[in-house]
């Protein structure tokens, strides 16, 4: 379980950053183009999983990383719930109320809270997928 050859390691190290950025791009443009939080989150998780697969399971401190990603997951959901519940406190008293200024359709900063939701959902999905993957890897490593 020492990972793959040097070529694979080097290439994945170069590619992982680009894949990560592409995931963030998909998340941020969720309200303008097809895609959004879930699709972007899976891409971001893919970049991490690629690194782990290429470099072998002994490279990272897997347990620490698993704790971190599950903590990030919980925090992301709590932020999402807080944002949604804050709608109850604004004037109109609706849960999930889109209380931020809407802006002009088509701009990157528009549609009020939806890009923020997308970002939070993306973080949550990425962390959850990574947690599931690490859970399986840790279980395998205990053999």
């Amino acid at each position: 379980m020492n990972g793959m050859s040097l070529i694979v390691k080097k290439i994945t190290q170069l590619m992982a950053g680009i894949i990560f950025l592409y995931g963030v791009y998909v998340m941020l443009h969720g309200h303008l183009t097809p895609g959004g939080g879930f699709a972007g989150g899976t891409i971001v998780a893919g970049s991490f999983i690629l690194l782990i697969v290429a470099n072998g399971i002994r490279v990272f401190g897997l347990h620490r990383e698993e704790q971190l990603s599950s903590a990030v997951e919980s925090i992301a959901i709590l932020v999402f719930l807080l944002l949604a519940t804050a709608g109850l406190l604004t004037g109109a008293m609706w849960f999930f109320q889109n209380y931020m200024p809407h802006g002009t359709p088509g701009n990157l900063v528009s549609a009020g809270l939806i890009p923020v939701y997308n970002l939070v959902v993306g973080t949550e999905v990425a962390a959850a997928l990574l947690t599931i993957f690490l859970g399986f890897v840790i279980y395998k490593a205990e053999d």
Binding site: S70, A71, S74, I75, I77, L78, L81, A84, T85, L88, M93, F95
Partner: peptide, 21 residues
């Protein structure tokens, strides 16, 4: 009416607070 979402939000929130803390 505004109380209805609380029945879902409160247990859901506490589930993840528990997992965290």
């Amino acid at each position: 009416e505004a109380l209805l979402p609380l029945f879902v939000v409160i247990p859901l929130g506490f589930a993840f607070i528990t997992a965290l803390l």
